[in-house]
């Protein structure tokens, strides 16, 4: 029964991977920008960064997705559904990336920053050369969790017309009335992603472990 639908389900799995692969880097970049705003010496930027995090973290992901999908066209911007969802996931998880970076930065010894400032590094270089690389060590694990959540969050595509794993599974179930089998297959798909991410996180953590 599965073999007849393997193509669709595999296609859905691929779409889930693609969604994740596009949305996570976006969340990283956006989250970095917001985090830098939040720790910058410029007050309006700090306020804007905080506003972003508060606003996004208090909105359901679905609301953001629907806003982008049905709100943007009314503003004259029609982006394909796939990219709407990528944008929604990116915007949403950027808030969590931002907070992860912030707590990673808090974990860096103050003296490291003072030393960097004392040799005359400008703010930008303090952040890029000293703060972020060290904060990254404390961030690997939570960032891995965010990556997994992006993959799981992409299941929202099923509600907004993106043919990802969950939607294909639902269609399969609709045709065959095999809910347990169908969702077990989907669960396996997400599990594979989860395990792969956990493996990579362990590898990266071993690599960046610092002697103190």
């Amino acid at each position: 029964m599965l073999s007849g639908h393997a193509g669709e389900i595999l296609g859905g799995f691929t779409t889930t991977l693609l969604l994740t692969a596009c949305a996570f880097p976006l969340a990283l970049v956006l989250g970095c920008v917001v985090a830098i705003c939040r720790i910058s010496p410029v007050r309006p930027l700090r306020i804007a960064g905080r506003l972003y995090v508060d606003l996004v973290r208090n909105s359901p992901l679905l609301l953001i997705a629907v806003l982008l999908i049905f709100g943007l066209p009314d503003a004259g911007v029609l982006i394909p559904l796939f990219w709407c969802l990528v944008l929604a996931l990116g915007v949403y998880f950027a808030a969590y990336v931002c907070e992860t970076i912030r707590s990673g930065i808090r974990a860096v010894d103050r003296g490291q920053v003072e030393a960097a400032r004392a040799i005359g590094l400008p703010f930008r270089r303090v952040v890029l050369d000293v703060l972020l690389p060290q904060a990254f060590r404390a961030m690997v694990q939570p960032l891995g969790t965010i990556l997994i959540n992006v993959a799981l969050g992409s299941a929202l595509g099923a509600a907004v017309g993106v043919d990802e794993l969950t939607l294909e599974t639902r269609s399969f179930n609709l045709e065959t009335a095999e809910p347990i089998l169908a969702f077990a297959v989907a669960a396996c798909g997400y599990l594979v992603i989860n395990l792969a991410v956990s493996g990579v996180v362990r590898l990266v953590e071993r690599k960046v472990r610092v002697l103190r």
């Binding site: 629907v66 049905f70 066209p73 029609l78 559904l81 509600a159 907004v160 017309g161 939607l167 639902r170």
Partner: peptide, 17 residues
């Protein structure tokens, strides 16, 4: 293209999606 709600289906047609 699967949407949960009829209002979303209608919006998708109106917006040319």
């Amino acid at each position: 293209v699967v949407f949960e709600e009829s209002s979303q289906c209608a919006a998708a047609v109106r917006q040319g999606r």
